[in-house]
Write a protein that binds this DNA or RNA. Structure first.
Length: 460
RNA sequence: GUGGUUGUAGCUCAGCUGGUUAGAGCGUCGGUUUGUGGUACCGAAAGUCGCCGGUUCGAACCCGGUCUUCCACCCCA
């Protein structure tokens, strides 16, 4: 045996069934995106490095796949840089392009670049792969698909409301019931940080808070202390750790904490607006839940923050996320362009649907009938029949190699069986003479000789 | 980037404290069955034990490195 070929870690091949299942998810999402008025765009797999670098924090920069320059790139490096062995100074000189890390930043770039051709508010969706140089683990790959829908150019909170509805619509259409749409607001987090005297430590504070359900109250407090958050501030957080009840109850507790923070109060108002709209509009199968510990994407989110988690009992990271970013295009020079968007994690949704057995049986449509090949003359007759069946939209094929003996007959039957082809047609010497077709139903083994008209009827 | 885990036939995995020619099930191929698959029986082929190096009289097994798998942390879809 020669050297085994392989694919890079964190990447996958997909067989016919997997492709069918993946496209089922994509089509379902696409359909809902279009129903909500989003237009598709696509952007290149790789961007100029400067478009991506620095947009996702230090951690993000580390996870961006960089593309090596072509040509004699080493000759352009000065001896000083070369000997320094410093990645940060050499990397930009030998790599000017990088693989797309998410769809949001390329979208922001797109909006700025095409601002004169775009009607605002601009609603677009985008379904494309992204790449991250991460270590793979459960539900985490180095190449995976994101399905994003965003609106730029509207500050209306009704956008947030519609996105909650959109999440609900997609997961309902996928029959994935009972997902939780968690919502939070950056302004509330800022408000809390302000109240406890940690405005400058917002990220440290929220990163610690985000771990609450994972490591528990004490460990979270410990981490906050270690980051230099004052003890009396941590004490003020106490009501946060025991938040309970419905949306309204939780908001009440928050109000008591945030009474002295203007920004915090704004955050609460926004949350309440979204919640009351949603409770009037009603969700079909999803739940909307306030989660003050939710703190993702803080590098650019400024208002609402969303995250969707799989139904209870399924061990999987978030299957979707999103939020409001008031100034994303600002980085590229277009000010005052508020955006809000959500993302679906195709690969994770796939794993969840698989685990819960929610894929419809009908999505893997294969060949319906296989014609057994006997010889040249028979094959010719078979191909004529196959062509006619195809004209009637019946998936039909003929085994490419002729039967020379019973062994090959067996081989062809086995082939039909393996591929789950439900019907086999035999056209041999006898059938040729009588101008008939022997149709065999594989599941039961029953077989009958039919004229073409009846064959067509039986297969329709 | 940190810590752990995995790698033996096409696939799933056994393989004792290091000891002759490395095993099973499934699959593949052939036969019982020359116009009939899915069930039965008989037989056969198939492995540089992930790769490189070390220890040893002797390594699938012990040690080091490296790649890979999966998991956790960080972060994230």
């Amino acid at each position: 045996m020669s050297k085994k070929p392989s694919i890079p870690k964190g990447t996958r091949d997909f067989n016919a069934e997997e492709v069918a299942k993946r496209s089922y998810i994509m089509e379902t999402i696409k359909e809902q995106f279009q129903l909500y008025g989003f237009q598709p765009i696509e952007t290149p797999s790789f961007e100029n490095s400067e478009t991506l670098m620095g947009k996702y924090g230090d951690e993000g920069d580390r996870l961006i796949f960089k593309i090596l320059n072509s040509g004699e790139y080493l000759k352009k490096i000065s001896d000083e840089d070369y000997n320094s062995k410093s990645e940060s100074s050499i990397t930009p000189k030998i790599s000017e392009k990088a693989l797309r890390y998410d769809l949001t930043v390329p979208f922001a770039r797109y909006v700025v670049q095409h601002q004169n051709e775009i009607e605002f508010p601009f609603k677009r969706y985008q379904i494309q792969p992204v790449w991250r140089a991460d270590r793979p683990q459960k539900g985490r790959f180095r190449e995976f698909y994101q399905c994003d829908a965003d609106v730029v150019g509207s500050k209306s909170l009704f956008q947030e409301v519609e996105f909650v509805q959109l999440y609900d619509a997609v997961f309902t259409a996928l029959k994935l019931e009972g997902v939780t749409i968690k919502i939070n607001n950056r302004k509330i987090l800022s408000g809390i940080a302000e109240v406890i005297g940690a405005q400058d430590k917002l990220i440290d504070f929220t990163v610690a808070l985000d771990k609450l359900d994972k490591i528990g109250e004490e460990k979270v407090k410990e981490e906050m202390r270690s980051k230099g958050i004052p003890e009396d501030g941590i004490a003020k957080l106490q009501p946060l750790f025991s938040l309970s009840g419905d949306f309204g109850d939780q908001v009440e507790s928050l109000e008591s904490i945030l009474s002295t923070s203007e920004i915090g109060k704004t955050g609460i108002e926004e949350l309440e607006f979204i919640n009351s709209a949603i409770s009037k509009l009603k969700l079909k199968t999803a739940k909307l839940q306030l989660d003050v510990t939710l703190a993702r994407g803080l590098n650019y989110y400024t208002g609402a923050i969303f995250e969707v988690s799989a139904p209870e009992g399924v061990k999987m990271g978030s299957i979707g996320g999103g939020g409001r970013y008031d100034d994303l295009t600002g980085i590229f020079g277009l000010k005052d362009m508020s955006g809000v968007g959500i993302s679906f994690g195709l690969d994770r949704i796939y794993l969840v649907l698989e685990e819960l057995n929610l894929f419809p049986d009908t999505i893997t449509e294969a060949t319906k009938v296989l014609f057994i090949s006997f010889g040249e003359e028979e094959a010719m007759a078979s191909i004529q029949a196959v062509s006619k069946l195809r004209e009637s939209n019946i998936k039909a094929e003929i085994y490419p190699d002729a039967v020379a003996s019973g062994k090959q007959m067996k081989k062809q039957m086995t082939y039909a069986n393996r591929r789950n082809i439900p019907f086999v047609v035999l056209v041999g010497e006898e059938e040729l003479k009588s101008n008939t077709y022997s149709l065999k139903k594989m599941a039961t083994g029953e077989q009958q000789k039919l004229e073409f008209r009846d064959l067509l009827k039986a297969l329709e």
